[in-house]
């Protein structure tokens, strides 16, 4: 864990890690975090009564042949988190989203430098299609990020390795 993330989580005692390719939905008051966001994207959805979900998605959409979990893809992660939030009592139109990640950590021959940007764009499209407004973002740029999502405070803290911390 980086010092930046340790600082972010210093006051947390019940944080749950969301690994690459995973999503989690938690009841009121729980904290979620994700680290190692380079080109990948963190999608935080805030529901009513401090319910919330966090996904660490790697890709935009599944290829037909892939058998991977819903959390790997922006599209399925958003739909599954929203479904679980609604099952838990959230109403349509009562959720908001925050996004972080999608950086170009380095440019390398053979890697699309805008993969992260495209993944963020897919997240925006999917959330818009489901009437979930994106209320704050910390996306793009060249730094990797880690995030901590405090569902009780409805606050997404974004930290980079150079010590910069932003509250969304």
């Amino acid at each position: 864990m980086t010092n930046a993330l340790e600082d972010v989580l210093a006051d947390e005692s019940d944080e749950t890690l969301v690994r690459a390719g995973e999503y989690r939905v938690v009841p009121s008051g729980a904290s979620l975090y994700a680290y190692g966001l380079g080109a990948s994207v963190a999608i935080a959805i805030c529901g009513p009564d401090s319910m919330g979900g966090l996904a660490h998605a790697l890709l935009s959409r599944p290829d037909g042949a892939m058998r991977r979990g819903a959390g790997t893809f922006v599209e399925s992660a958003i739909r599954e988190m929203l479904r679980e939030l609604i099952e838990a009592g959230a109403g349509y139109g009562s959720c908001e989203a925050k996004l972080a990640g999608g950086a170009t950590v380095f440019q390398l021959e053979g890697l699309d430098p805008d993969t992260g940007g495209q993944t963020v764009a897919t997240a925006r499209q999917e959330l818009s299609a489901l009437d979930v407004p994106v209320v704050a973002t910390a996306v793009g740029g060249q730094r990797g990020r880690c995030v901590a999502f405090d569902t009780a405070a409805d606050e997404l803290t974004v930290a980079t390795s150079d010590g910069e911390t932003t509250q969304l």
Binding site: T2, G36, G38, R68, F106, L111, R143, S161
Partner: peptide, 26 residues
Amino acid sequence: STPAYTDDMGAAVIDPLVVGLSERQE
């Protein structure tokens, strides 16, 4: 390729490679 240098978190540095390969294999 030519080298691509960065000074960042290890997991965030391997992330773009994981994302790139993820498009083709699991």
